[in-house]
Amino acid sequence: MTDTRLEPREASDEAPRGRAPARRARFWTLRRTDAATGYLFIAPQLIGVLVFVVVPVGLAIWYSLNEWNIFTGELEYVGGGNYQAALDDPQLPSVLGATAVFSGGVVVLNLVLGLALAVMLNRRFKGAVLFRTLFFSPVVVSVVAWTLVWGFLLQDNGGINGVLEQLGVDGPNWLQSGPTAMIAVTFTQVVRSVGINMVLFLAALQGVPGELYEAARLDGASSRSVFFRITLPLISPTLLLTAIITIVGALQSFAQIAVLTEGGPGLSTTVLVYYVFQQAFSFNDIGYGSTLALMLLTFVMVLTVIQWQLRRKWVFYED
């Protein structure tokens, strides 16, 4: 580590072919030293992920192959039994459907609203800073407190229907019918988390060079075509990042469902992560819960890989 002279990064790509034979004989070449430093730098993070993520996932796979009597602590190997149970589970199709509707709704609304807010606030006017703060503030409110309050407001005789009544509208019983309950959980999740995306989009919009707008305006482009032809392509890398973060977050939304609807009415808002929690922690079926959790993990992985592959098609530039 005391070897302080390093080749420039580009040079270290070169194989040591062209070097002097004397240097080749030395084991701790600069390149090797640098590589060792690299491993040392990433070691805490890598070990953390291996110990606290990879090993537990391995254990979860083992659990999914067993039936676990939680009270006596006995594991019984059942092979693919839990996977067969998942195929036979009459509730699972509804759960997957609700998961798709909720996640899809959250992602689309979150990105569209986040971008719309960023565009509105990315200009100079009195109060812009204040509004930015207001839209961001739910992010710092704890999920449990936030959802609890929305639970009050969404009651049939709650605040929202109270306001609607003032406007002469007879509001629906939000949490008591499937479609409106889904709208309610989606909406509260979007409002709570859109602030992060708004700020990321604001940051991206700041990165778009002003000259491009000038040029487009001189060419007589409408503001709509400026947005779709210039702004959107230039911030597409941010769009990709926020899409990934939002999808992962949506698939993991647990507290919102647990506090607002408990997955009801019927199975209408029982998303996969809530179903996993019920099986593993309420019904004590850890084997089946692990099986479903691994399914959720597979979904997240597949979606992420698809997005990553598709990025070449729609992301404007990358490093």
Binding site: V55, A60, Q252, F277, L296
Partner: peptide, 10 residues
Amino acid sequence: LVPSEVTIVP
């Protein structure tokens, strides 16, 4: 990408 629900029991 791994949801905490997957890893919490292990």
